[in-house]
Amino acid sequence: MKILMKISSIFLLVFVLAACSNSSEDMNPNIPDPTTEVKVTANVMAIKTGTLNSQSGTNTKGMIEIVSDDAGKYFLRLGKDFVSDFHTGTVTVYLSTTNKLKLSESGSFQLVSVVNQNGEHFFNLPNLPDSKFTHGIIWCGAAGIPFGNGEFN
C-alpha cells in the first residue's frame, strides 16, 4: 500500500510540474513580456531582502530582493543562487501581502514578470513597491500552485 501511495504521489508531482511547460497555448496574456528583465550594470542597494522557501515539492530556492540603482530605479532581483523546477512557460514572480498568493483579492499582489531560467535576474519595477508587499512569490500559473515564497526583511 505504501509503494502505491509513493507511486501515486510521484505521478501527481510529475503531472503538476509538466503543466508548467513552455507551450504558448498555456501563456496568460496578462503576464508581462519576459523582456522586462534587464541587465543592471550600476551599483545596486538592497532595500528588502528575503530567502525563497520551496513549496509544492519543487527545489525552488535562492535570494529575492527589492533593490535600487544609482539612478533611483527600482528592481526585483533574484540572486545568482536562484533555482526552480520547470522555470519556463508560466512560472512567474509576484509581490504579495502574505506568503500565499491570493489572486482573487485585488490589491493583495503585484505581478512582476515571467521567470524562464535559473540564476540572477533583475526585473523593472515602476516604483518602490508599497510596504504592504511583504513577500515574493514564485508561482506556476498553468498548475495554479506556488513553487516558492520568501518574506522580505
Rank of each mutant, 00 (worst) to 15 (best):
V114F: 01
D33L: 11
T134P: 01
K61I: 00
S68Q: 13
L76M: 15
E25M: 14
G89Y: 12
A142R: 07
T60S: 07
N127M: 05
K2Y: 05
V114W: 01
E25C: 10
H87T: 13
L52S: 00
G89T: 10
L12K: 11
S8P: 00
E105M: 00
K6G: 01
M45E: 15
Y94S: 03
F133R: 06
N118W: 10
K61F: 04
T90C: 09
P129L: 07
P126L: 07
A19P: 02
H87Q: 11
A71W: 00
T58Y: 02
V14Q: 04
P34G: 07
S54I: 00
T92G: 05
P29S: 06
D85S: 13
K48N: 12
S56W: 02
S54A: 14
S96V: 10
G141M: 14
C140R: 03
I64W: 04
C140Y: 02
Q55I: 02
T41V: 15
G144R: 07
G89Q: 08
L17R: 06
S84N: 11
K132T: 00
L4K: 09
T51Y: 06
T51P: 00
N116F: 12
L12N: 09
G148Q: 00
F133G: 09
S54N: 14
T41N: 15
M45Y: 13
I145A: 01
E25N: 14
E65D: 14
N99S: 15
V83Y: 10
I7T: 09
L128H: 05
L13K: 01
N118A: 11
P146H: 15
L101C: 08
